[in-house]
């Protein structure tokens, strides 16, 4: 049963990933991205990471994909024109490079034996307190500084996005002149 779920979710994730890069329109790419993130959330559930699965759906599928859709609709999701001859050779080069990268990563996965010190958060221990409580405790003790820094980073991100996307007074599209 677990294996069937893994294969189905993995196949959906891979197909959606291919869809993101093959889709001619940006909106379709964003929707394929949504499918990819949702199947990743399912895989997190299979891996016993319930909190992350929920966060994945809320943050990625809820916030990030919506942001992509907003940007696409603001900029107009036009189709790409692939007329350049150099583009085709560039594509082949890209695929060759990707295959090389995949062989490298695959070699490490297949040949390398996984080592490392085992921690104390076994599935039995987690079942007693619950995944969310265990992660929360870890976030507010061992990872308190990164957690606070993430908050500052998000604040900087908000300010940066507003500053970058704000309409400047002397741009090509003045807002004030259109309605008077």
């Amino acid at each position: 049963m677990e294996m069937v779920l893994f294969i189905v979710l993995g196949a959906i994730a891979i197909a959606a990933a291919v869809g993101v890069i093959m889709a001619r329109k940006t909106v379709y790419s964003a929707l394929f991205l949504l499918v990819n993130f949702c199947s990743l959330a399912g895989l997190y559930l299979l891996l016993n990471a319930q909190f992350l699965a929920a966060a994945q759906v809320i943050v990625y599928a809820g916030a990030i994909v919506v942001l992509f859709l907003f940007a696409t609709m603001l900029l107009g999701g036009g189709e790409e024109i692939s007329n350049l001859k150099s583009q085709i050779s560039k594509n082949y080069l890209a695929i060759v490079l990707a295959v090389v990268l995949f062989v490298e990563v695959g070699y490490v996965v297949v040949s390398g034996t996984l080592t490392g010190t085992q921690g104390s958060d076994t599935p039995e221990a987690l079942a007693r307190v619950g995944n969310v409580q265990a992660i929360g405790k870890l976030l507010f003790t061992d990872y308190l500084l990164p957690f606070e820094l993430a908050a500052v980073l998000l604040l900087i991100g908000i300010i940066g996005a507003v500053v970058l996307a704000k309409k400047k007074p002397n741009t090509r599209y003045p807002i004030s002149n259109t309605h008077d």
């Binding site: 994945q56 990030i64 957690f147 998000l154 991100g157 940066g160 996005a161 500053v163």
Partner: peptide, 16 residues
């Protein structure tokens, strides 16, 4: 979880 926060900030700034 922390990477998710970074990704959200990155997307906001990148789209800006």
């Amino acid at each position: 979880f922390l990477v998710m926060a970074v990704a959200a900030a990155e997307v906001a700034v990148g789209l800006g």
